[in-house]
């Protein structure tokens, strides 16, 4: 016969296997229900916790949904102007070369207004980490078309779907910077399933560890949802992301240890 185990017996400190990292400030996140930003934040902070580098890490979050990231991440942070995070990070990393420096940018920020800063930081081979959250839309300003908005995808500024003949094509920034000599590690991940969350965390860990090598940019794209902007609930949005975003933005490593990963 099975013994009856009650919850009090299980919920003991010695049985604790997962808790919100204390490196996330104990306040509610400002993101919409189901938004991947929260999970991405948590993975970054778990990596910083596990590496024991809280006192050596400086984060930069520019304008976008994550503009208030400094309210949530218990590390020293700078808020940058729209698109300019890689410029700030360049200076901070060069002036404090032994600190761990990362940017946390959305697709509008990194792939539109900050295109020049992104490409040149990657091309110079700066030694910081870039976290690129791509949800194919401008979330904070209310769901406008982003450089990464898919063809035919609806947004508030492409209400009939993105017509590439008029609005141009989506920009695969991650593929683009893979081919620059200054990038050392480039990968594309997601945070919508447990397996993907684990892979993303591993990627972020590698991207931070790489900073010790001083061999160039480590770049982690996280394809994520924007249920509010996509006008879906979170579960639908994750499914839509798998069916529509992943074929265009396939997950996996693009460059590892300075070597481009050949696609089979």
């Amino acid at each position: 016969m099975e013994k009856t185990i009650n919850k009090e017996q299980i919920r003991k400190p010695e049985n604790l296997v997962y808790r919100r990292t204390p490196l996330l400030v104990d306040v509610p996140l400002s993101y919409c229900p189901g938004c991947g930003h929260g999970t991405a934040h948590r993975m970054i902070m778990e990596v910083i916790e596990e590496m024991g580098i809280q006192q050596d890490t400086i984060g930069i979050a520019p304008v976008g949904c994550s503009v208030l990231a400094y309210d949530f991440l218990d590390i020293d942070m700078q808020q940058a102007a729209h698109g300019r995070a890689p410029a700030l990070a360049t200076a901070i990393k060069r002036l404090w070369p032994d600190k761990f420096v990362f940017t946390y940018q959305g697709d509008g920020d990194l792939a539109a207004i900050g295109t020049a800063e992104t490409i040149h930081a990657c091309n110079r081979g700066e030694h910081f980490t870039m976290i690129f959250v791509n949800n194919g839309i401008y979330g904070m300003t209310g769901g406008q078309m982003a450089p990464t908005t898919l063809p035919h995808m609806r947004s508030s500024t492409s209400p009939y779907g993105r017509d590439v003949e008029i609005m141009g094509f989506p920009l695969k920034m991650t593929e683009l910077i893979t081919h620059l000599p200054g990038t050392y590690y480039v990968t594309r991940q997601s945070v919508h399933t447990p397996a993907n969350v684990r892979k993303t965390k591993k990627a972020i860990r590698k991207a931070f560890e790489n900073q010790k090598l001083k061999k160039g940019i480590s770049f982690v794209e996280i394809v994520s949802n924007c249920n509010s902007g996509w006008k879906m609930n979170a579960v639908q949005a994750n499914k839509w992301m798998e069916e529509n975003m992943f074929p265009f933005y396939p997950l996996g490593d693009l460059k590892v240890d300075g070597q481009i990963v050949e696609k089979k």
Partner: peptide, 24 residues
């Protein structure tokens, strides 16, 4: 002293912003 030729004045002023924020 770090000396860097930036990709634009937009980048250089934001490098200054970053460096200044880091106490330099």
């Amino acid at each position: 002293m770090v000396v860097l030729q930036a990709e634009s004045e937009v980048a250089s002023i934001n490098m200054v912003y970053g460096g200044a924020g880091a106490g330099k």
